[in-house]
Design a protein around this nucleic acid. Structure first.
Length: 932
RNA sequence: GGGCGAGUAGCUCAGUUGGUUAGAGCGCCUGCCUUACACGCAGGAUGUCGGGGGUUCGAGUCCCUCCUCGCCCACCA
């Protein structure tokens, strides 16, 4: 126990945070004990979050800061609520991203990955990851993340690699994974295929080129000599194998069945009719068919059994690939596709076959890792047959076993799930889980295997493993259970699966979250979590997403060094609307993070006050105090605490659905972290510090029983406040907690991180009388400021006797609170007895109506502008009159009373009563001020 | 092209089922170094609640429409 003299005048986060974190870690505060989980016979509900694994090469940025702060707040809250809380940390090997990092290194050495070969490349990457990987996990500690580091996972670890193989082979055995030959998205920079979700759309200006093809009419028919097609990618025409028109299109009826001459390549191609793939209203109504380089054309090509020449190399250069023969002339061979586009257009123009070029804005897909324009390309890939997996995932959201917050994402999820297409999971990369399939060249056997294969199981011949690796998301979709030991039926898996909340950004809803839900059902038969919380994106003041490459980023470690982790966390959480983006100013850290630091300082100073005035001696427990000894301010702050707890609980919401299905009234409740923090902040600052601490000063300076009561209440209330705030500002609350004097019957200090969440004490009900005092003081402060009464001048305020007041004996308040009021407002309140009536005295002063109907009179002869007060009150009264009149009219209208539901009418009547009462008060005020 | 969200004080945002004088933080103005706190205290100013129309006694809130931004989805070449 530190003595009060040891607490510095200034809170220094840099000096305490890392030490505090070490203590937590060493004490095992974050380590979940599976034996305590109810699922394995323990007495606690498990509460589990798996961290969205950052890329193993990542360094902490504000996006991580936001994501992990949100998770930590939730986990710390549940830990204090008595759950067996587990937050599983880890990293993702991040196939393409990490491979790109190493390839860049190689490029700076003038090499490519092919120069050093696969084995050396993988070895080098492994080494790099081993040395620098996981930096981010270390950085998360600075943020205060209360992860169970004993369970740190890595998608490419031996354990998780086993899970990946198991998943692949299981799906293979169930007929849900297959080898497909079709057009996929190809990144010519990364040299790999991509899934639909990895090829991102971007609207871009481009051109629509109208190209004329000479028609070779069927024998004995007449018709147009030319047929014009429109294309945005003219270079692909070299891969054309047909021209398709709609069968009902009158313009082209006669040429169907004929042929056209493909310019440049000089190949004859058929003119075919296809109702499904051709929209007669677009362009010219004639569509060039390039099956190897367009997904739609591929389908048409397949329907019509057309050849599929490949005319682009993997690098995106013009090339005579499979089936291409000599279509690409030597003048174009090897040209980049965009150069080739220019060149082809030029050639067509020279041939006189470029009819026109018109600007055309269209969506172009880009590689999500390197932003290169992706090319549709015919190739052999592994696919997951996804529809059967999507069904339970769709049902789970529809049936409210899984909720998405904010709600609007549910529609997007359902929409995506309904239109889902097979998932391309093979990547032509080297960094990742190699596909566990072996081929026997001798007998053609294909074997998917959990174990490495040496020879063919059928013919005993040599086998070779598939060269490709799996999509990085094929390992991360297993994350909620692979991190818990699956496929082994471990105790961790039994105790902690399914998990609870999944916290991430909407960008990876389809790439990751949706697939995890499918994976959960596919391999565990159960949803992986019941809540998906999608927070916003961190942006700068121009609403541009923060990123290192744009130079508008904020380094969380800088913020932590300057303001402390608590300040960072407070800032991130306090402004956080559900699903809203977080705007921060990278050029003005002070503006963004000072409020968090200031709040920490406020807490610190309350602590300093408490320690120097309460002392470190044990205090009585509030529960053990005789209720009769509590002062009005004590009762008031204890009630405020109840309110604060209730508001925090309501904002944080239910932790889990009862019975596995979200009830309608709880479906959208909770996880409003911004509201939770605001409630706690208001309590500490505006109620505890601004009023209670002020009120308690003189009592603490005194002696005797009342001092003991004040000590007990202050310690109790501040301790509860620290606990309420701990999830957001864990470091400073822990630091203050351990210095707090103990309450008598709570002799087990321990960490605040594992202290019990405050509970409402119904013994402390509403305290209206102190509210009255606050109102009176506020009114006097306003007068003082408004009339520029100097602090030295005393104001005499008089509470008028008032039969209608809710306080039976108004004078009692004044006697008790006089000193407080003197401190706060520097005025004197004089008890008025019934016989005196100052308002009717010289009549010069302010009459203030208090909430309970009492009246406060402040004589201010010669100072107060009675006319102005009178005008204000009169206006107010007129407005209320008008409103009251319309309400009364409404209640008298049979058209309303006859139709409206009974409870509506009842509430309107109550409103009328309330307003009538208020009108009476106002009228009295007007009489007093205006003198009529 | 389809869908969704947002537009409230200079900035970032709250505003529950329509109803007293539309709120908070930061910023701004005024006065205070009141022995927990100037990273503070007290007080204050600032809003045609995106535009227009409608329902209603009454609309920031409900309906229609338009405008502006943002996001998601999409095989019109």
């Amino acid at each position: 126990m530190a003595s009060m003299t040891e607490i510095g005048t200034q809170y220094d986060p840099a000096a305490t945070e890392s030490a505090t974190y070490r203590e937590w870690e060493e004490a095992g505060v974050f380590t979940a004990d599976l034996r305590r989980s109810r699922r394995s016979g323990g007495d606690r509900e498990p509460f589990v979050i798996v961290m969205p694994p950052p890329n193993v090469t990542a360094v902490l940025h504000m996006g991580h800061g936001l994501n992990n702060t949100v998770q930590d707040v939730i986990v710390r809250w549940r830990r204090m609520r008595g759950d067996e809380a587990l937050w599983v940390p880890g990293t993702d090997h991040a196939g393409i991203a990490t491979q790109n990092v190493i390839e860049k290194q190689l490029a700076s050495e003038g090499k490519t990955r092919f120069d050093i070969g696969r084995e050396a490349f993988v070895a080098r990457t492994t080494e790099f990851v081993g040395e620098t990987g996981g930096t981010i996990l270390e950085q998360l500690r600075a943020l205060g993340a209360s992860c169970d580091w004993n369970r740190t996972a890595y998608t490419l670890s031996p354990e998780l690699s086993r899970a990946v193989r198991e998943a692949f082979v299981q799906l293979y055995e169930r007929g849900l994974v297959y080898r497909g030959h079709r057009v996929i998205h190809w990144c010519s920079r990364c040299l790999t295929s991509l899934s639909d979700e990895e090829a991102e759309h971007a609207e871009e200006p481009g051109n629509l080129y109208h190209v004329r093809y000479r028609v070779i009419a069927p024998a004995g028919t007449t018709g147009p000599d030319w047929i014009t097609v429109a294309t945005t990618r003219p270079e692909t025409m070299l891969g054309d194998v047909a021209i398709a028109v709609h069968p009902d299109d009158e313009r082209y009826r006669t040429v169907i069945g004929g042929k056209a001459l493909l310019p440049i390549a000089n190949v004859e191609i058929p003119i075919i009719a296809d109702a499904e793939g051709v929209d007669p209203a677009f362009g010219t109504g004639a569509l060039k068919i390039t099956p190897a380089h367009d997904a739609n054309d591929f389908e048409i090509g397949r329907r019509h059994n057309l050849p599929m020449p490949v005319i682009l190399s993997p690098e995106g250069r013009m090339d005579n690939g499979a089936e291409a023969d000599h279509r690409v002339p030597s003048s174009l061979l090897g040209l980049d596709r965009f150069e080739a586009r220019e060149k082809v257009v030029e050639m067509l123009r020279e041939l006189g076959q470029l009819e026109k070029v018109e600007p055309h804005s269209h969506a172009v897909r880009h590689c999500y890792r390197c932003d290169t324009v992706v090319e549709p390309r015919l190739s052999d890939q592994w696919f997951v047959r996804i529809k059967p997996l999507a069904e339970p995932a769709l049902a789970a959201v529809r049936e409210r076993r899984i909720r998405l917050l904010p709600e609007r994402w549910e529609a997007a999820y359902i929409n995506w799930m309904e239109g889902i297409r097979d998932w391309n999971i093979s990547r032509q990369l080297w960094w990742g889980h190699r596909i566990p399939v072996w081929y026997c060249d001798a007998c053609g056997e294909v074997i998917a295997s959990r174990e490495d294969m040496e020879s063919c199981t059928k013919c005993g011949g040599p086998v070779r493993q598939d060269d490709d690796v799996l999509d990085t998301w094929f390992s991360s979709w297993l994350w909620p259970f692979s991190t818990l030991g699956w496929p082994d039926r471990t105790s961790d898996l039994a105790s902690f699966y399914p998990t609870d909340d999944l916290v991430t950004a909407p960008e990876i809803l389809f790439l990751w979250v949706s697939r995890m839900i499918m994976g959960g059902f596919a391999f565990m038969g159960e949803a992986p979590f019941h809540t998906v919380y999608l927070h916003g994106t961190v942006r700068d003041l121009e609403h541009v997403k923060m990123s290192k490459s744009l130079g508008n980023g904020i380094d969380p470690l800088d913020v932590i060094a300057l303001y402390g982790a608590d300040a960072l966390r407070y800032t991130v959480i306090s402004g956080l609307g559900m699903g809203a983006d977080l705007m921060l100013d990278p050029n003005d850290l002070e503006k963004s993070f000072a409020p968090g630091r200031n709040f920490a300082t406020k807490l610190w100073n309350i602590g300093r006050f408490l320690l120097s005035n309460v002392g470190t001696g044990t205090v009585k427990s509030v529960a053990a105090l005789d209720p009769g000894t509590l002062a009005r301010t004590d009762r008031w702050i204890l009630h405020c605490l109840n309110e604060a707890i209730s508001e925090c609980d309501a904002a944080l919401g239910p932790a889990r659905p009862q019975g596995g299905v979200w009830k309608a009234n709880e479906l959208r409740a909770g996880l409003r972290l911004g509201e939770y923090v605001e409630s706690a902040r208001r309590f500490v600052w505006n109620e505890l510090a601004d009023w209670y601490v002020e009120a308690v000063k003189l009592r603490l300076a005194g002696s005797g029983e009342d001092r003991e009561v004040a000590r007990a209440v202050l310690v109790h209330v501040f301790g509860a406040a620290l606990r309420l705030l701990h999830p957001v500002v864990p470091f400073i609350t822990e630091t203050l907690w351990r210095r707090l004097p103990l309450e008598a019957d709570d002799a087990t200090p321990g960490f605040i991180a594992t202290a019990a969440w405050p509970a409402i004490d119904p013994a402390h009900g509403e305290e209206r009388e102190f509210e009255l005092v606050r109102e009176a003081i506020n009114a006097i402060r306003q007068l003082r400021a408004e009339y520029a009464i100097s602090p030295g001048d005393q104001i005499t305020a008089q509470l008028l006797p008032d039969a209608g007041g809710a306080t039976a004996d108004g004078s009692a308040i004044l006697i008790e609170e006089t000193q407080l009021i003197q401190r706060l407002a520097r005025c004197e309140m004089v008890k008025m007895s019934g016989e005196s009536a100052a308002a009717e005295g010289d009549g010069k002063g302010a009459l203030i109506l208090l909430g309970n109907g009492s009246r406060l009179f402040v004589p201010l002869s010669g100072v107060i502008d009675i006319d102005r007060e009178c005008a204000k009150a009169t206006t107010e009264l007129a407005k209320l009159d008008k409103q009251l009149a319309s309400l009364t009219a409404r209640l008298a209208n049979p058209g309303f009373t006859g139709r409206a539901p009974a409870e509506v009418i009842e509430s309107e009547r109550q409103k009328e009563q309330e307003w009538t009462r208020r009108r009476g008060q106002l009228a009295e005020k007007v009489r007093a001020l205006c003198g009529s």
